[in-house]
Design a binder for these strands. Sequence first.
DNA 1: TTTCTAGTGTAACAAATGTTACTGTAGAAG
DNA 2: CTTCTACAGTAACATTTGTTACACTAGAAA
Lengths: 210, 210
Amino acid sequence: MIEELRQNYGYLFEDELLKEIEAIGVIKELRANTKLIEIGDYIKYIPLLINGAIKIIREDDDGDELVLYYLERGDTCAMTLACCMGQTKSEIRAIGETDVKLIMIPVQKMSEWLGKYKSWQNFILQSYHNRMLEMLEAIDTIAFLRMDDRLLKYLRDKAMVTHDDQIHATHKEISEDLHTSRVVISRLLKKLENEGKIKMNRNNIKIIDL
Amino acid sequence: MIEELRQNYGYLFEDELLKEIEAIGVIKELRANTKLIEIGDYIKYIPLLINGAIKIIREDDDGDELVLYYLERGDTCAMTLACCMGQTKSEIRAIGETDVKLIMIPVQKMSEWLGKYKSWQNFILQSYHNRMLEMLEAIDTIAFLRMDDRLLKYLRDKAMVTHDDQIHATHKEISEDLHTSRVVISRLLKKLENEGKIKMNRNNIKIIDL
DNA sequence: TTTCTAGTGTAACAAATGTTACTGTAGAAG
DNA sequence: CTTCTACAGTAACATTTGTTACACTAGAAA
């Protein structure tokens, strides 16, 4: 795992810390659309992303969902950090958007390293900061944008993290991620197609205007 | 300032840290409805709340606003932490909801103390965690609730942080905090009054059903 | 091939929210 | 006192979003 680790985190962490991670961390592979964390889970490992993208989802009491943001390589999950800090349950669901490769670090190491490695401390604080900004962006999106713009942003974000301008998803799936109904998505997608911003096929949407 | 400091943070911080705070921190008083932080500000001080409540507001490019959450005594502003970490500008506006008393800590101390005091480290991480949860709650509110429930929640939250079941605000002000129009708020308030949940007078709303 | 199912298109309608316009009124200012 | 202004009430209408119902189609399954 040493090359992958150094490739993604080498510029962040000092040598000693990299060695510790290498010694203690466990590589985990996650297939696209499989669950990494469920709401209510207790967290035992902190994930460091090496490859792929993870979708972070919030759910309300009625089971209605909403995608908050994506994690990519070099990211970790601030929610997870928060949870293992406070010994609380996960407030979010994490699902592989693509196939994902990650290094799992046992939570005890988290606070141990905080005192021991300045670079780890910076990384953790920076992660919180980044996640905070993503949450703000999520709030901006749902508070200030209408559904057509939210949809377009969703498609672009998805294209970004999958490195593919073809979106492979049904209207139903999209509607669940955006917390609206299938009919609304079909309607707005058709509108976007008429505006020349996308091109549709069954189970496939191509973004023209990336 | 020593009593106020110990009263609010004594159980959190070790003695040495308390003494440092006392030596370095500056007491600041802020009148209700005055600005502490503006969007785009560079942050030089970290605020520790002693008394009162601060309203945290997000704004989009068109100047449309949205209240995210309130800070109360014992809280600090995680956005501020984030900003001084990354030397970036403030993403939010902070306004006194009530008269506020706070201790201002120069940002250099922030990272110095992180290495020096375990209790400070915990406090900072815990603050991030708490703010993260408040952001999640904000997202739940705007994503999953309709305006009437959002309004009721807004009134209750406001009553909570001001310790007053009488809300002194115009419909216009409320509509700006919730990012909607005055007419909508008037309409929904009237509905809430008819349902017996509030009692209205000019510039004054009394919550019956707290 | 035929049958079945998931995915999509679309109309018609309902509900929630936003907008405009106009009214009346309390309280400040003169 | 009268005048002015900010605040609130409400109607009428527009827009956005949500819901129900049904038709059509591609591709899998039999």
